[in-house]
Amino acid sequence: MSDAPRPWPPAGSALVTGASRGIGAAIARGLAADGWQVGVNYNSRSQDAQAVVAEIEQSGGSAVVIQGDVSSPQAPDAIFGALEDHFGLPVLALVNNAGISRDNLAPSLTDEEWGDVIDTNLTAPFRFTRRALRGMMRARTGRIVNIASVVGLRANPGQSNYGAAKAGLIQFTRTAAVEVARRGVTINAVAPGWIDTDMTAGVNPELLAAVPAKRAGTADEVAACVRFLLSEQAGYVTGAVLAVDGGLGA
């Protein structure tokens, strides 16, 4: 399609939602190391987000913090606008990482617990993807990675809302990927299993016995997969779900 080889990363920036800590922070650091100019989105943890940016800058990378609650319908325009203004570049890589959990058994799950998780973990990635595709389709290149979960593939009691959102995110990923594939845009999902982060801190460690690898994964191990999917070499990988779970979903 293209007449001349394009540089990689392309002349665009990368946005990582929910990047103040955990998996999102590891992804932001990794993409900056790969040469992307990174937008570090956060909702409430301003100091943590600023620390991620400071660390990236100390390593010679380029990043900026962008506050915004991804579940707001106005968030995509506001966050993309801020990032595009700051770097003067379109967003050509998007990692929908921000997520929440509101665990409860289905018989007692409240509408609010259901709705909050669907809004943040499914509707927000849809809106961010829609916003990102405008520029990516025109640029004839782009990379989107949605952070799903093994819980979207395999039942985990207490997480019917989270599992439903992540399963929905996986199928949204596949369908949108097929729709835009011929524009040079890839959309993939990464499905982490048990990763050592604040989100899994309260979980019963006995559950680790079910993980074939017999250990928790690290945020950097998830970030490594995202970095691959955002690389030039991954241009023919689209609509895929890459599990990073020590074999839990196998």
Partner: peptide, 13 residues
């Protein structure tokens, strides 16, 4: 249909 979506977005922008 995808081409027409992109055309509509160009026209809107």
């Amino acid at each position: 249909s995808l081409d027409l979506v992109e055309l509509a977005q160009i026209i809107e922008d």
